[in-house]
């Protein structure tokens, strides 16, 4: 495939990852922190931005590690452990750098970084990248799109939940229950985008 075609493909994959195959609303990845941190817009934005940054960088790092270390050695089975170590080490590293050089950013995003290591969306994106055999350029579009899609979903959810903080909800549905119903409605809306990109 030529570079031009790859860049085009990368763009299509990115749009698909944001809308029609949203990593949260279609693949349910990152659901735990989605339910836990979507009570207020401020927290949701912080976590969402951190996810965009970490998912893009670690998926690319994982791509390099997978194709230049694991495949030549024939150790593809060990990708789970390698990926999780790379993600954990990278998040730790970023936390240290941010704390040292940008106290403001650390105040805003610092608390979310440890949460990210166990966010299934980050790990899931790396696994999808392997299964779908994306090239490096396509992976750029895919990981960026996945992050943006997750950000959009949690932002929308936080906006809705803030508005309904004072609503009267049946007791058993309070908290996670109503959030799941809202997520279902949002997933329905996102399915509406399916016609935009056929068969991707």
């Amino acid at each position: 495939m030529s570079i031009g075609a790859e860049i085009q493909e990368s763009f299509v994959v990115m749009v698909a990852a944001i809308f029609t195959q949203n990593i949260l609303l279609t693949y349910f990845l990152g659901l735990c922190s989605f339910i836990g941190v979507s009570r207020e817009i401020k927290g949701a934005v912080g976590l969402g931005l951190a996810v965009i940054f970490v998912i893009t960088t670690t998926t690319l790092l994982n791509w390099i590690a997978y194709h230049y270390v694991l495949v030549p050695l024939g150790l593809e089975s060990f990708r789970f452990i390698l990926f999780i170590i790379i993600i954990a080490a990278f998040v730790q590293f970023v936390e240290m750098v941010v704390e040292r050089y940008s106290p403001f950013l650390y105040q805003q995003l610092g608390v979310f970084l440890p949460l990210i290591t166990v966010n299934c969306a980050i790990f899931g994106a790396a696994l999808f990248m392997v299964i779908r055999e994306y090239t490096f350029i396509v992976t750029i579009g895919y990981s960026l799109g996945s992050g943006i899609g997750w950000f959009l979903a949690i932002l929308a959810m936080a906006g809705i939940r803030q508005k309904m903080a004072i609503d009267r909800i049946p007791r058993g549905l309070q908290g996670p229950g109503i959030t799941l119903i809202l997520a279902g409605l949002m997933a329905l809306a996102f399915i509406g985008f399916a016609g935009v990109l056929q068969g991707r």
Binding site: L25, T26, Y27, F28, P170, R171, G172, L173, P176, G177, I178, L180, I181, A183, G184, L185, A187, L188, I191
Partner: peptide, 19 residues
């Protein structure tokens, strides 16, 4: 069998068992 169905079903199950 689509993703929204999973969200709705899970919400209903959570609701029922909590109740």
């Amino acid at each position: 069998v689509t993703p929204p169905g999973a969200f709705f079903m899970l919400a209903i199950v959570v609701w029922f068992f909590r109740w």
